[in-house]
Design a protein around this nucleic acid. Structure first.
Lengths: 199, 199
DNA sequence: TGTACATCAGTGAACGCGCGTTCACTGATGTAC
DNA sequence: TGTACATCAGTGAACGCGCGTTCACTGATGTAC
């Protein structure tokens, strides 16, 4: 039997993998750095070498998440040129990368002013604003910021509610299908314009 | 000097108040039942008498939250009969009752199958579905569930993003104003119908 | 109005546990010459 | 190709701390008669 080598070799990556697994299982609060060390088979003090503390590790995960999100949105826009599909892609990202998503928007878990984090945040927001700007060219009454916020809010809320198990079962169990159906209600004509009073 | 009476008198309420304060300050994970006991000036074992454990306390807070939310949405609908204003009220509730809101949608913090919780959840969802049903009467192409989910997602996402400090500053600093502007993009005509490709 | 008793709310000492942090260390790897 | 040395990654024992939980208790309140 080979004894365990002194150096793990890829401990940083292994810790991130374990953390993602732990987050998916019990949320970002349900485990300690010592837990991760145990999972990775290293001594309990080893994680501090790479991340300092738990916030450092979660910040690294958030950075990865924003990069993946930006890539996914970009790929979708290049392929489809369909704004609605960007929204669907956002939900797909959240559901497929639940652990990343759960950490990315919880500032109390992160070093929010980490420069790398701020940079990837900025980059990924341009993946939303670009396409919205294009829509404004077609209808100048669109205010870019408000319209982008509406779109972002819709898909962000949908993803959050779905992940929290808060949506009615009647919608089915495929989040991507749900998203595709729900986003059609953004920028959709009202039956009667102006005040929507109907009661 | 009067010595502290043996019975607190209203410990249950005092613990909830302290918990709300603590959540607002450091989030739902940053404190212990012993912390709350200290704040309330009682012995560290006293909280268990009323709530069993932290989940029990947070569940009680969530129940209160749903009741307050349902009341706020109902009041708004009765007063305005304007569906958009229900969305604004949702955001107003979240921002004014941040601690409640942060707990209500985090199932891992709650006893999700608590009967009282399930009941108030059900009640508060009818405050959304009722008005949406009314809109469907005016436009049969509305699918109640999908349209309600779109509306809920939009305001839920907006509230979450605002509370997390994730929205661009350009929107201003009054969440109710932001909400009123953003919800106009729900059910709003697109410049060109069908595929929204513009690139 | 008084007494006896049950129930309820809160006490405080004790427990075992897992945590993050510190620190002197060891083993492996990379680099200069 | 060999040697010396610096740097880096990970070890493991020790620490003090706050936590939830237990348990026998005490003091206050409510109720029956």
């Amino acid at each position: 039997m080979r004894s365990r080598p002194y150096h793990h070799g890829a401990l940083r990556a292994a810790l991130i993998t374990s953390a993602l697994q732990a987050i998916a299982e019990v949320g970002p609060a349900g485990w300690s750095l010592r837990d991760l060390a145990r999972r990775a088979g290293v001594s309990h003090a080893a994680p501090a070498h790479h991340f300092g503390d738990k916030k450092g590790l979660l910040t690294a995960i958030a950075v990865d998440g924003y990069l993946m999100l930006a890539a996914e949105l970009d790929r979708t826009w290049q392929e489809t040129r369909d704004f609605a599909e960007i929204g669907v892609a956002y939900v797909r990202f959240a559901v497929s990368n639940r652990a990343h998503f759960e950490v990315m928007f919880r500032p109390e878990l992160l070093r929010s002013s980490d420069p790398a984090l701020e940079e990837v945040r900025r980059v990924s927001s341009t993946r939303l604003y670009g396409p919205i700007e294009a829509m404004r060219a077609a209808d100048p009454s669109f205010e870019t910021t408000a319209a982008a916020t509406a779109a972002w809010s819709l898909v962000h809320g949908l993803a959050s509610l779905w992940l929290g198990g808060n949506l009615p079962r009647a919608l089915g169990d495929d989040p991507e299908t749900i998203a595709r159906s729900v986003v059609t209600y953004l920028f959709r004509p009202l039956p009667a314009r102006g005040r929507s009073g109907v009661g």
